[in-house]
Amino acid sequence: MSSEFGVWLAAFFTIGIASFLYKDNPLYKFCESVFVGISAGYWAVALFWENLIAKMFDSLGISYFFGLWPEKGALQDIFSGVWNWNLLHILAGILGIMMLLRLFPKIGWIARWPLSVIVGSTAGLWMITYFQSNFLSQLQKTVVPLFDIGRINELSEIGAAMSEQGRAIPFDAYFAAYLGNLILIFGTLTGLVYFYFSKEHKGVFGKTAKVGIYFLMITFGASFGYTVMSRMSLLIGRLYFLFSTWLGFVN
């Protein structure tokens, strides 16, 4: 059994949160309220050091001025006549303060300014990124021959060798060679038809969309099956903590 105070504290909070499984109770409420407070503070501290200090005060040279950081920043550069883009971080600071003005109802609308910078950069960046990585590269990988000739040829070579040893060619190898590309192309295209909004899902079009839904359902099923595994491992981790680190039953 552990003799560390911290471990006991951790065990207390572990059991407290888990007690929610039985029903909502004061112990859970306590842990929940601690969790909300601690995590909100946790993020505030992390962003203070990593964003406010590192991005703004260091890069502007304010930390250097107070001797808190060895490197010069934008302000020092400007005074020695060199343009430094980081000087624009002052504007970001102003936008940040505008954000805080949201606390005062009368002038709270000014928070829209920084918000629009955030939303604008998201829009610009995501538009390009998703188009490249999701649209283009997926299009690229959908443009494949219907049958994988290379793999089919490979199969006949390996097949001969394997049947000599009395073994069967794996099912997935067959599938990959003859049906793999077909399923990839067909599934992607029918799935896309399901997402077609400006045409009613009727007739042949409707049938295709229906096939698309089935592909989506298989995808969801597969993700679910895969996820069950992940979720179980999380609990195993906690059980190890309780049985091993805290109680010392197992190594």
Binding site: S137, Q138, K141, A222, S223, Y226, T227, M229, S230, R231
Partner: peptide, 16 residues
């Protein structure tokens, strides 16, 4: 994590 893995599979296939 196992939840994220199925999302990553298409990228394995493309060599990304």
């Amino acid at each position: 994590t196992a939840v994220q893995a199925p999302l990553a599979y298409p990228y394995l296939d493309t060599g990304q």
